[in-house]
Structure formats: structure tokens, C-alpha cells
Design a protein around this nucleic acid. Structure first.
Lengths: 242, 242
DNA sequence: AGCGACGACTGATGTGGATCAGCGCAGCAT
DNA sequence: ATGCTGCGCTGATCCACATCAGTCGTCGCT
């Protein structure tokens, strides 16, 4: 029996990987490294970058505009790849910043591609993970393009609940969340001021409370209705929270 | 020598594929089909969907909200995959509509995954294409989240110029563009009314003219500066237009 | 010739969220 | 104990863009 890492838990939700496949997967993991919060591990424009699998902590990938505005594209939680796209497109199109202190394991992309030739099911699983990441970015585009601030916030926090529940870090009660209101603002295309107001609205409406690093779902069902949250884009069957 | 399809031209910009690899690629193409403009070929929520490679014409992938708003995620041009993500995530998270009449060839995903085991370089090439698609979605997120309407429009049209030039359908003069102002509005998160005003501004500023189905770059360099357009996210070296 | 549908285009009015300018509090360094 | 910094929080004001309510021109249909 191979160890039960967040990545294995996540991929396991999609395909049951055999022991040989799991050991190929395990063999990809090289050095283990730790990064402190706030200091970028990948810079926009950088080339010849390594790729990582996140073992613990939270990170975010973002793009910076010349005038200093930033757009956070997505947050990464344990089990997610970091910088896989940067490696395939020779130059990184985004930066990655640890939100908390993080632990990662490095992977060599050449090893990964070799592994595909040996175990095609693993290729399918990795493509699935990449597609799921893309689907989440697409959903963020819908958030920013077509939902108002409150729906956007609600939808975003519900997505997090679903993602975290897959690796056992969320329940129907809520989840521990190390993000600041500035992170939320940069991710949702809002100002920090407005994030604050919107969180108050949602709290006063009795739907969700974000306080002291914890997101509490006060009325999960109402929240799902309000945000029109349909998690099928993540290839999960339902809200999945108990 | 294998035929010079748009897909081969596009992948060729990334890796030089050998003749055996090209013939594996060609063998993936099954039935050729034609679809009329406006009638969806993939519906949001549908499962067991086929995947296609676009041979001619333009399509768009979009998501619909319950209240009838829609967000166009991206447009597809010849050489692009249609519905690859829908197949990997068992249920389609988006719809695909032909903008013009289109010709496609069907591919079976099982064949594609088998091909990876035989020719790992092809896996790399397809992963590259998928990463490039994701990078474009990310850039659209930045457009909608952090650029104002005029910059957004300029950036979007410049991206199109670069993409189309890769398959020989654009020059520094401009390109034929079958989109309506409603398409642009749904893609950029604007109203059609505002799209119209923004196009007028850009035209009066002497940067770009979109009229009668043709986008003309009146002052390409100024436009690039105005939109802060850096095409490196598409893994292309420069504006690439002559 | 007349009619409907569709797309481009426009002016008037309304509003969601940005921006500015501030306060309070907790943790931490000196 | 004292300031400093980061984060949460708030009211007042402003503006980019939405919405509404049209006009006009072109095409295809009868």
C-alpha cells in the first residue's frame, strides 16, 4: 500500500490507480522543499522553471500588470500542481506566491512524460487534473465577467469548500482559510474595501461568516442557491459536504 | 510528406514532429462533419460527448447562467480542439456554438491516449496545446478582471491577430473576423452598447477599425503599447505579424 | 412592394463598485 | 511603554459601464 498523499486522494476521486501506477507516481517525487509565505517561487517571465506538487499549505498563482494591478488566477491547495504550465510553455506566464508557508516536492517534467509512455492511465489522470484546473479558471472568468460581487464571493468560497473536502480539509461547517481580504480582492477583481462590505452583507444575510481565519457556512443550502453553485465543472457529483 | 493542416501548422510552431508522429496524428482523424452556424454542437451538462478538431470556420465555447447571461470563454479557430475538456471531465461544463459554418473531424479520446503511449512527443505536443489554451483563458480572466473596456478590446483583438497569423489567416494589416458586436460583448463581459462605443473610441484614436467583417490594425505599434500586449503567454516570440 | 429580423449605432439616465480618507486593534520590535 | 505595521472596517464621493429606449440600414421572405 502506497502512502495516502493529497495528490493520490485527489486523483483517486477520478480513477482508481493500481499499485504499479501509484509507485510510478511516487517515483516522480524528487527533493522535498519548504518555502516561506510571501516570497514568490515562480516569477512571471522566468524560463527553465521547475514544477512542484504542493504537499501542505496554500499558494496562489497571479499575473501582474504594468500599472501594478494584480489578478490572482487561482489558489493552490495540497495535492495541486504548481507551475506545470510554466514548464510546458517555455516561459512562465504567471507568478506563484505561497500564501502560507508551504511544503512541496519537485518533479521533473521529463520523468512525467516518460511515465505517460509506461502507464497511459497516469497520463489520463494528469490530463484530467489539468482539465479540472482549467475548468476552475473558466468558472472564475464567469465569476468576474457575469456575477455581481456577492454572488462572486459566495461562489468562490463554495468552490473552495468543495475542493478542500476532497482532501479532507473542509466539512459542511466550514474550513480554515488563511486568505486575507486583499487576497480575495485580487482574486475576485474587486477592491479590498468592497470585499469587506460584501462579506458583511453575506454575514448579515445569515449565509456565511469569514472571521479569524475560518469560513463558516451558516446556511449552506441558501448559499448554494444564492450563488447558483453547481460543482459539476469540478467533476464532483454534488456539494459533497457532510 | 503529410498534409499541412492548421493543427500541424500550430503544433509545428512548438515541436518539429517527425513523419511517423505526423502519421499517428493523421490516423486519429475519423469522420469529417459539417455544422451550420448558431446551432450548438456541445451542450452544457451533456455527457459522453465526442471531441473534434476544427478544420475551417470559427466556433466559441461559452457558459450560460440561470438568468440568461452568457460568458464566452474563448473562440476556436482552425487547428483548435473542440470539447477535449468535456470528454476528460465526464460531463461538459460548457457549450460550444459554431460562429460560422464549420468543418470538423471527430477524434476518439481513447485513440488519442493510446497514441501517447506510442509517441510520447505527441503527448507533449497535445499537453502544450492544452496549456496554451489554458493560458489564453487566464489572459481573458485578466482582461475582464483588471483592464478597462478599451484595453480589453484592444488586447483581445491583438491576441486574435497573433493566433490567426500562426495559421496564416492574419497579417499586420488585419484579419477577416466573422464576430458580431454581441459576440464581443459576451466574451469581454460588456454590453453590446458599450462594445460599440469602445470600438468607436479605438477607431477615432486611429488604432483599429472593425468594419464589414474585417479588423484593420491602423496603428499596430500604438495598439500594442495601449493594450500592454505581450504575447509570450501564447508561447510565441513576438507579435509575429508582418 | 412591404415586412420582419438582425446588426450597427446613439442619447439619457441609473448604479455597482472604485477611490479616497480615515479609525481601531493586535502583534511585534525597539 | 511606545511606536510601527498589517489587517479589518467604515462613510462620502465619483465614474465606468449597464440599462432603457429608441433610429437606421440591409438582407431575405412572401
Amino acid at each position: 500500500m502506497i502512502e495516502n498523499t493529497p495528490l493520490v486522494r485527489k486523483l483517486g476521486a477520478f480513477v482508481a490507480l493500481s499499485d504499479p501506477e501509484l509507485s510510478v507516481l511516487a517515483s516522480l517525487h524528487k527533493r522535498r522543499r519548504t518555502f516561506v509565505a510571501g516570497r514568490d517561487l515562480v516569477h512571471q517571465g522566468q524560463s527553465d522553471q521547475a514544477a512542484y506538487i504542493l504537499a501542505s499549505g496554500w499558494a496562489c498563482s497571479y499575473k501582474l500588470l504594468e500599472d501594478g494591478q494584480r489578478q490572482i488566477v487561482d489558489f493552490q491547495i495540497p495535492g495541486d500542481f504548481l507551475g506545470l504550465r510554466s514548464v510546458l510553455l517555455h516561459v512562465s506566464d504567471h507568478s506563484i506566491e505561497p500564501v502560507t508557508e508551504i511544503e512541496v516536492t519537485e518533479i521533473h517534467v521529463a520523468d512525467l512524460l516518460d511515465a505517460f509512455a509506461q502507464t497511459p492511465r497516469l497520463a489520463t489522470a494528469v490530463l484530467w487534473a489539468a482539465s479540472r484546473d482549467e475548468a476552475m479558471v473558466v468558472e472564475h472568468l464567469v465569476d468576474v465577467g457575469r456575477r455581481d460581487a456577492a454572488e462572486r464571493m459566495a461562489h468562490f468560497l463554495l468552490e473552495f469548500g468543495a475542493r478542500l473536502s476532497l482532501i479532507g480539509l473542509a466539512s459542511r461547517e466550514g474550513f480554515a482559510c488563511p486568505l486575507t481580504q486583499y487576497h480575495l480582492a485580487d482574486a475576485l477583481g474587486l477592491s479590498a474595501v468592497h470585499v469587506n462590505r460584501v462579506l458583511r452583507q453575506l454575514r448579515e444575510a445569515g449565509m456565511i461568516t469569514f472571521r479569524d481565519g475560518f469560513v463558516a457556512f451558516d446556511d449552506y443550502d441558501q448559499l448554494v442557491r444564492f450563488a447558483q453553485f453547481d460543482p459539476s465543472y469540478m467533476d464532483q457529483k454534488g456539494p459533497l459536504l457532510r
